[in-house]
């Protein structure tokens, strides 16, 4: 699957030791600002949207004793129970666990699609439990989101889908014309911008979704089973994209139950079971080794 090779040939197996990784991350970020390897992306780093999440050395995500109960007749379902977690700026975290363990609930708390029943959720220094409703759009546009079902706008081409994220933040048509093709090329869809979602394969649609999620350079990217509908080879391609995005300094949180992928990457793994964190391990595999 050469089409799933990222332009610089990066593969997941290149996983680095944590110290090296941090060093490289700092370097990539600096390059991102000063030109160098990714000179084309210098212009992309605009803080029109990212400004909502506060800069600084603090953690990107903090959850403190978070509980989420879905109300219902029979006392409701406790989807998350007493979850506490910190994710540092620039980290890559896999959120794993069986279906129904609370991964999606966790993810949806971060964009305030859901409100926690108790406890605190802080993203980029913003306490979401105290965020006014009118501010929610500003939170969401500063977080890149990727879903299992892609969530592309059906009546729009790949190009228009990516452009929409920029139109929302009031980007100028000139910049949109410049940025969208760049990002589409980056995800390997340079030639397919004019295709509609139903004219693209699942993997291609997910690439469009990845392009949309980071075209305005969010500092946090969350993905809920982004490879859930894709075959293994295509999944690796998407994984590589997310990895590369992470290497430019973007914090990535990815919910998945794709065992092979997690094992290959050797990243931090947070495991949920019945809404509780039962494991939080660096450079880990999907399952606890015996």
């Amino acid at each position: 699957m050469s089409s799933d090779q990222t332009p610089n040939g990066q593969t997941p197996e290149d996983a680095l030791s944590e110290a090296e990784e941090r060093a490289q991350r700092r370097m990539l970020r600096r390059r991102g600002r000063t030109g160098g390897e990714s000179s084309g992306r210098r212009g992309l780093r605009r803080d029109k949207s990212a400004s909502f999440l506060r800069d600084g050395d603090g953690p990107m995500v903090v959850m403190e004793d978070v509980k989420k109960v879905y109300e219902g007749k029979d006392g409701g379902t406790t989807a998350l129970d007493d979850v506490s977690l910190e994710v540092d700026s620039g980290e890559f975290v896999f959120l794993v666990g069986q279906s129904g363990s609370g991964k999606s609930t966790f993810i949806r708390l971060l964009t305030k699609e859901l409100d926690s029943s108790s406890g605190r959720v802080v993203v980029g220094g913003r306490d979401l439990t105290r965020l006014r409703r009118g501010r929610i759009p500003y939170l969401r546009r500063s977080i890149g989101t990727i879903f299992q079902d892609y969530k592309l706008l059906p009546g729009r081409t790949a190009y228009e889908n990516v452009a929409y994220a920029l139109e929302i933040i009031g980007e100028s048509p000139r910049n949109i014309k410049r940025m969208v093709p760049e990002v589409l090329t980056l995800v390997g869809l340079g030639e397919k911008g004019e295709r509609y979602p139903n004219e693209l394969s699942g993997g291609e649609q997910q690439r469009v979704s990845v392009a949309r999620s980071f075209v305005n350079q969010p500092r946090l990217l969350i993905a809920d089973e982004p490879t859930g509908n894709l075959d293994p080879d295509t999944s690796i391609g998407i994984m590589q994209l997310l990895y590369r995005i992470n290497r430019t300094g973007t914090t990535v949180i990815m919910a998945t139950h794709d065992r092979d992928l997690v094992d290959k990457m050797q990243m931090r793994v947070v495991e949920l079971e019945d809404g509780k964190i039962i494991r939080d391990q660096r450079q880990a595999r999907y399952a606890l080794a015996d």
């Binding site: 949207s49 964009t111 699609e113 009118g134 759009p137 500003y138 939170l139 969401r140 546009r141 500063s142 989101t145 879903f147 969530k151 592309l152 706008l153 059906p154 009546g155 929409y164 994220a165 929302i168 933040i169 949309r212």
Partner: peptide, 14 residues
């Protein structure tokens, strides 16, 4: 579609 627009951060009036 409207749901997606909200998820990617479109404001009410947008």
């Amino acid at each position: 579609e409207v749901e997606i627009m909200r998820l990617v951060g479109g404001t009410n009036w947008f």
